[in-house]
């Protein structure tokens, strides 16, 4: 039991480093949106997902409805359902239902990608090792970002508000360079999202983003359907 846990921790370490920097940006944005550091940390601990949390904080800041919160989280995190289905085919028989209920907490893009790339069946201890280290990086990064926002001068923290979005840019641009289908999805989503802001400011931020994202994905899926292997292999 100990050995796979240790191996999982090793695999989780690079993920934790990446998470630290992203969640640092999240901590900044959360505190700038009016949340307390402890609230930002609790959100990170209980959600463990960058896009969903950022959206959630925007909805809280805008005083959105709970329906809007639920709908946006559902759409933004829908990919985890597919990843869960994919991972469920790879589980060792020691992965009983209680273990599945617990390990489900840690299905993220990066953890999925690493776990899916293993050439052996997945045991619970391995998943727990990876998830615990990665989640620690995520939570500590959030705390560091929240605290930095309080300690540093306003001129600097204002500029730091762009960090999280800078990361999102760094995630979406490189694949778009070589894959015109992803470029299409990105450009359509950005245009729709900007159009909502310009011409339909009455639509709340959460709905504007999910409508933009779904419309873009559906249009791109109709234009460029993907091959079945790609949907599971290319998720990073």
């Amino acid at each position: 039991m100990r050995k796979p846990f240790y191996r999982g921790m090793l695999h989780g370490f690079p993920i934790a480093l990446g998470y630290f920097s992203v969640s640092f940006g999240f901590g900044i944005v959360a505190v700038q949106s009016g949340l307390k550091a402890i609230e930002a940390v609790i959100i990170s601990l209980t959600n463990l997902t960058s896009a969903g949390q950022t959206m959630g904080v925007a909805i809280i800041a805008a005083g959105g409805t709970l329906l809007e919160m639920a709908a946006t989280q559902l759409v933004i995190n829908l990919r985890y359902a597919l990843m869960g289905i994919s991972l469920s085919q790879k589980l060792d028989k020691s992965f009983t239902t209680p273990h599945r209920l617990l390990a489900a907490y840690g299905i993220t893009d990066e953890i999925f990608a690493v776990a899916a790339a293993q050439d052996c069946k997945l045991v619970p201890a391995y998943m727990y090792g990876m998830i615990s280290v990665a989640a620690a990086g995520w939570v500590v990064g959030t705390l560091a970002g929240s605290v930095a926002n309080m300690l540093l001068p306003v001129s600097l923290t204002a500029a730091m508000g762009i960090m999280l979005y800078g990361m999102f840019v760094a995630i979406i641009i490189p694949p778009a360079k070589t894959d015109h289908r992803i470029l299409s999805a990105i450009v359509i989503a950005a245009i729709l999202s900007c159009a909502f802001k310009l011409w339909l400011p009455g639509v709340s931020v959460g709905f504007a983003i999910i409508i933009s994202a779904i419309a873009s994905s559906v249009i791109t899926a109709l234009l460029f359907p993907v091959d079945s292997e790609e949907t599971e292999e290319n998720k990073q």
Partner: peptide, 22 residues
């Protein structure tokens, strides 16, 4: 079709969240 939509969703969501908010 459904698989394709799920494949594009993460990119579309990140893009819609980034622009124009950035």
């Amino acid at each position: 079709f459904f698989k394709s939509v799920l494949y594009y969703i993460p990119y579309a969501v990140l893009s819609a969240m980034t622009f124009p908010s950035i």
